[in-house]
Simulated assay, not measured.
Amino acid sequence: MDFTVTVIDDDFRVAGIHADIVDSTPGFRLLSSARSLGEARQLMVADPPDLILVDVYLPDGDGIEFARRAAADALILSSAADADTVHRAFQAGALAYLIKPFSGKQLTDRLNGYQRFRQALSAGGDLTQEKVDQARAVLSDSATPVARPARAATEQLLLDTLGSAEMTATELAERTGVSRATAQRRLADLAGQGSVIIRLRYGQSGRPEHLYSRAE
């Protein structure tokens, strides 16, 4: 199931760019696009999104306060770079803050991080503190790791998903929400650490398939 997104920006060109990035990111679908908070309210009442991408300064109000009250997760996208505004955004519950102008890859990385965040919290029952910390860490984990803790969180997610089973990198990628390339890279690291065992499965023809399982 795709995560639905509403883009809120008074600049129609910028909104269009962000909408295109959303629609081109696997696992996401643009639900609506609004030029004002009033328009966004109407759209979201009729069709509530999972996630909003909202600017701070809008013609009819403050995007951060809108995000605080919205019944949706929020990423703040703004040219405001002062510490007070950024702090206020996170205080309001924003999951990420991107300072304009930013690259398409940066937004894609935040969307992918959000997807992993939701995946990490999708398991039923109570969560451990480790699971909560892991969910927060994967929000900022991208194809270009910035810090070791975020990378470790993705590796732990792969290990937890493996459990006592044996899976391919593709199966693990689908279940955890990370890309197949990231899953393969992290599994290789885990194998080098001795945490994962790799077994080759030979089929009727073609190259052997790599199967991964947790080491005892």
Rank of each mutant, 00 (worst) to 15 (best):
A92T: 07
A183Y: 06
S122D: 14
D109Q: 04
L187V: 02
R88H: 06
E130L: 13
D62Y: 05
E65I: 07
F117L: 02
R136E: 07
R118I: 06
P145M: 06
A153I: 01
F117W: 11
L157A: 13
A147D: 14
R148A: 02
L95E: 09
D133C: 10
G104K: 04
A181D: 15
A165Y: 07
L187C: 07
A80M: 15
R180L: 01
H87R: 15
E65H: 11
G61C: 05
V178G: 00
I76L: 10
R151M: 03
N112S: 09
A181C: 06
A96L: 02
L159V: 08
V132R: 12
L95S: 08
L172E: 08
D62R: 01
D109E: 12
L127I: 02
K105Q: 15
R110V: 14
Q156R: 09
G163M: 07
D133W: 01
P145D: 03
L162W: 09
I64T: 09
F66V: 14
R88M: 04
T108L: 04
K100L: 07
I76M: 08
T182S: 12
A92L: 11
L158P: 03
V146E: 10
G124Y: 14
L139D: 00
L190D: 00
R118K: 15
A72Y: 11
R175V: 02
S103F: 01
A80R: 13
L98D: 05
L58P: 13
A123K: 14
F90P: 05
E130F: 06
A94R: 01
E166Y: 03
A83R: 13
A67D: 06
F90G: 06
Q134A: 01
A173L: 04
T154L: 14
L77F: 10
V86S: 00
A143H: 08
A94I: 05
G63M: 09
R185S: 13
R88P: 02
V86K: 06
G125M: 06
I76D: 06
R68Q: 11
L157H: 09
D109K: 00
S122E: 15
A71K: 14
I64K: 11
L107N: 00
S122Y: 05
T182F: 00
L75M: 08
V132E: 03
R148D: 00
T154W: 02
H87G: 15
D109M: 02
L127E: 03
F117H: 11
A152K: 10
D189G: 06
V132I: 14
L158Y: 02
P145N: 06
A153H: 04
Q106A: 14
R185I: 04
Y57K: 08
E171F: 01
F90I: 05
A71I: 07
A188T: 14
A169L: 02
L98W: 03
I99P: 00
D160I: 01
V178C: 13
L77I: 15
T144K: 12
T154I: 13
